[in-house]
C-alpha cells in the first residue's frame, strides 16, 4: 500500500504516522503541505499536531495549503483519507466531514489512554472489526469536543456515520467515560461515502513495539484488509 502523510507547519505526529505504516511494510511518504503532488497514494493521512499554530480555529488555516486542494479532489474521487486529531479538525474545516471540534468541556489539554468503542465495521478503516469492540487508543488534545446541530447529528446516527465512541473499559459509552464533552460520546465519524474518516484518538501511538497499547494495529490491519480485498 502507498501511504502519503501530509506535513503542515506545526504537524508533530507526521513522522510517527509515517513510521507506523512503514513498519508494516508499506511505502509511506511524507508530503510537504506546499507540494501539489500527492505521490499517487492508496491512503492519505492528515496527522496530528497544531497546524498553523491552531491560530483562529484549529485546522482552519490548513485548508489554504496547496496540497489540501489535492486531498479534497482525492477524497471526492473516492480515495481513502484518514484524519487523526488535528487531521480530523482539518477535515471538518474543509467540509470533507460535518461538525466541529470545540474546546474540551473541562478546558484542559487531555493526554491519556482512552477506551473507544467501534460502532460500525462498515468502513475501510474498521473493516472486519466487530461493532462493540473496545480499543485502548491514546488521546492528546484540547479541542476534541465534537459539536454538530441536532438535525445533522441525527443524520450521522441514521446513516451509521459514527464510527468510534468514547467508552469505559466494558464498552459503556457513559458521560463519565466521555473525556471532552463530545456530543453523543463521538470520537470519530466518517463521511456519507465512507471513504473519509476523522478520529481524535491516535492509533499511530498505539501500534509500534514498546508502547502500552497496540490496539491501533487493528485499525491499520482493517485498512490493509480493505486494500487487499479491493485489488
Amino acid at each position: 500500500m502507498r501511504v502519503s502523510v501530509i506535513t503542515f507547519p506545526g504537524s508533530n505526529c507526521d513522522r510517527d504516522t509515517q513510521r507506523a505504516f512503514s513498519e508494516r511494510g508499506h511505502t509511506s511518504n511524507l508530503v510537504w503541505h506546499k507540494d501539489r503532488d500527492l505521490q499517487n497514494p492508496d491512503l492519505v493521512v492528515l496527522p496530528g499536531g497544531f497546524s498553523y499554530g491552531d491560530y483562529l480555529r484549529c485546522g482552519s488555516l490548513a485548508r489554504f495549503s496547496p496540497i489540501v486542494n489535492e486531498v479534497v479532489a482525492f477524497a471526492e474521487s473516492g480515495g481513502l483519507v484518514l484524519g487523526i486529531c488535528n487531521g480530523f479538525q482539518i477535515l471538518t474545516e474543509c467540509d470533507l466531514l460535518p461538525g466541529s471540534l470545540l474546546m474540551n468541556s473541562g478546558l484542559t489539554f487531555i493526554c491519556q489512554h482512552q477506551y473507544i468503542r467501534v460502532e460500525s465495521a462498515n468502513t475501510p478503516f474498521t473493516r472486519n472489526i466487530p461493532a462493540g469492540r473496545v480499543l485502548d487508543i491514546p488521546i492528546a488534545h484540547k479541542e476534541g469536543n465534537f459539536f454538530i446541530d441536532p438535525e445533522r447529528l441525527k443524520s450521522l446516527q441514521d446513516n451509521d456515520q459514527i464510527i468510534f465512541r468514547y467508552c469505559d473499559r466494558d464498552g459503556a459509552a457513559t458521560s463519565e467515560a466521555n473525556p471532552n464533552g463530545s456530543l453523543d460520546n463521538i470520537a470519530g465519524i466518517c463521511n456519507i461515502q465512507r471513504n473519509v474518516l476523522g478520529m481524535m484518538p491516535h492509533p499511530e501511538r498505539a501500534s509500534t513495539e514498546g508502547v502500552v497499547s497496540r490496539d491501533g494495529r487493528e485499525i491499520f490491519a482493517a485498512i490493509e484488509d480493505y486494500f487487499d480485498s479491493s485489488r
Binding site: L102, S105, F147, D149
Partner: peptide, 11 residues
Amino acid sequence: PNVLDPQGKAV
C-alpha cells in the same frame, strides 16, 4: 446561543 461555552462557564 445553542453552543456551550466552557470558557465562559469557567469565567
